[in-house]
Design a protein around this nucleic acid. Structure first.
Lengths: 345, 345
DNA sequence: CTGAAAGCGCTTACAG
DNA sequence: CTGAAAGCGCTTACAG
């Protein structure tokens, strides 16, 4: 099968005894072509099972109608939801997606970005890997004339289009809620502080404590507890403290919160009466644990659509004077569930 | 930035005063080129920030080093895991992925496939949408000389490479296990029977009943209960029967099984003592529900890797006489958890 | 080992 | 409205 020769515009032109350029015009629905020939070309194209070679078309036109996406892992709920959103919006505009995963490694992230540059994608959408520190490869994208959009895990210092959550505000609200539920010693599981999102979440936590005149207790702030295992380890450590916390804000992820819940359950500590738990991201499972876990919804599918549409707007406004907002911040929503509700309303 | 002109092999050739063909050879590491010139070219390429235009290269070579993937939804655990597996294996071989989602609609599936054909992908990997009945678009892929690989939800009559699960066997084992746990009236939630996988799972169910000389009770077989909501509806209906079932095999998915569990929980029916529940797919949440749900692991990431590697093998053996197996069946694994264990071992 | 030339399949100014 | 021609950036037989 591989050897089968595909139909080209020349085959159609030859059969109809017209010029290839006319065929091309007819196929791209130009209005500089006679209606009759247009119909004839379309009919013949269908008969010969013609498929436009997008590669050739793109090469000629100097654009690929392709968006490259780089995420840490495709099979993590948050990212797969964002990708689904990007796909939906892109599909409507006739754009394709090339997807790469960085596996949370900057080294692989760099390779992915280079591949996408080679592919001549029109736009690269990226959420940084956790160990991403140097951003030369992102600068490289810009230098190659490719639109760069960062989302969620962004490098703040790079002036690019960005779609982010208001992490600080969400975090502030979550901790405020816990304080209002009467929790006095609220621990923070924080993520790698080289990522801005995790720094912002910490700030939100600190601001909430400040607002309610509560002391900042260093022993209740645990670094780098952003997976289920690390969350569980941190919880063991915290709950064995002379003065253990009465609530834990797993600011890094719901996976971390799940680790907290499991350890509490094993240790026979009751949630939410003895220990409040709040996660981050609204993973599907947070609704079905017992008790259900309070968390923060990031509207991930919507975030994906927003990313794609931001690119399309930017393209349309390229030559206009109107200024498009460069950073879109989506307000996340605190979902109060059982794991933090000990006051009956 | 968009206007920036990229460096081409001609820029390098001009600067070094050699032919473009030599530059091309040097860059593709041909051994028909002097070591000294090769080094010089590489150095200059780096200086000028040269990036090969893959579009042009692929157009000339007549292949794209791209695999197109069509799945119902990117953001469903099973599919995102398969995609992650495909990505990993493809990345190692220098292949890119273009991802589309059919949204379970044959109409969109057809458009996706056509887009991928236009993109001149080398291979299309597909898992059919639920309402896929006619398969002309898949035949079209083959007719266009593109390798077609089906996985999981396959059209049996099409002679293509396939990677599947042994659904019948897995289903048989699951039901046998439930029978051995003493369940007497085991209901089946079945999926749309136009999909082979759901037919196979039904056969496995029936075979298990037959083996243990148990009657087939038509009122316990519920059609089309393959989402959480449909699973819940079916459960309400079943549990209100004069003679309700004492176990439910949600052969369609874990989501369906979750619907069963929630209804049982609302109705105050104890799992597993009064009602046994078994799902399908090993979604992450099945481990953390209370009780945890017995299910079947499909090894989804491995399945993805297998798909990609099958393609690469097929390519390598194209001109050899050796025959590559056309259908790879992965044996799924029954994971026995709390929701079906009422005998203490 | 190197160069000149053709060609992958398309699009688009340029003439008419 | 239509055609002839150039060119997108690369690769690869063909000569030498």
């Amino acid at each position: 099968m591989k050897s089968k020769k595909r139909t080209t515009i020349y085959d159609i032109a030859e059969k109809l005894n017209i010029a290839a350029s006319s065929v091309s015009r007819a196929l791209s629905n130009s209005n500089h072509v006679n209606e009759a020939t247009k119909k004839l070309v379309l009919k013949t194209a269908a008969e010969l099972n013609y498929k436009r070679n997008t590669l050739a078309s793109n090469l000629r036109k100097g654009k690929s109608k392709t968006i490259g996406v780089v995420v840490p892992f495709i099979n993590q709920n948050f990212f797969s939801n964002v990708i689904a959103g990007i796909e939906e919006a892109s599909y409507q505009k006739g754009y394709n997606l090339i997807i790469c995963q960085s596996n949370e490694l900057q080294s692989k992230e760099i390779k992915c970005v280079n591949t996408l540059i080679n592919q001549h994608v029109d736009c690269i959408v990226i959420s940084l890997s956790v160990d991403s520190s140097d951003h030369q490869h992102l600068q490289n994208v810009i230098d190659n004339g490719i639109e760069l959009i960062q989302f969620d895990r962004v490098a703040d210092e790079l002036e690019t289009l960005k779609v982010i959550n208001d992490n600080e505000q969400a975090s502030f609200e979550a901790v405020s809620h816990m304080i209002e539920q009467g929790y006095k010693r609220i621990a923070l599981l924080e993520g790698p502080q080289n990522l801005q999102i995790f720094r912002q979440r910490k700030v939100g936590y600190l601001n909430a404590l400040k607002k309610y005149d509560m002391p900042i207790l260093d022993e209740l702030i645990i670094e780098n507890a952003w997976t289920k295992e690390l969350g569980a380890n941190a919880t063991r450590k915290l709950l064995n403290l002379p003065e253990p916390p009465d609530a834990i804000f797993a600011s890094t992820s719901d996976f971390s919160a799940l680790g907290v819940l499991e350890v509490a359950s094993v240790m026979g500590i009751k949630v939410p009466s003895q220990l409040g738990i709040c996660g981050y991201s609204n993973e599907a499972f947070t609704e079905i644990t017992s008790p259900s876990i309070t968390t923060i919804d990031q509207f991930s599918v919507y975030m994906g659509k927003t990313v794609a549409n931001l690119y399309f707007q930017e393209m349309e406004n390229k030559d206009e004077t109107e200024v498009v907002p460069k950073i879109i911040s989506i307000k996340p929503k605190l979902l109060i569930r059982s794991s933090t509700q000990r006051k009956t309303v």
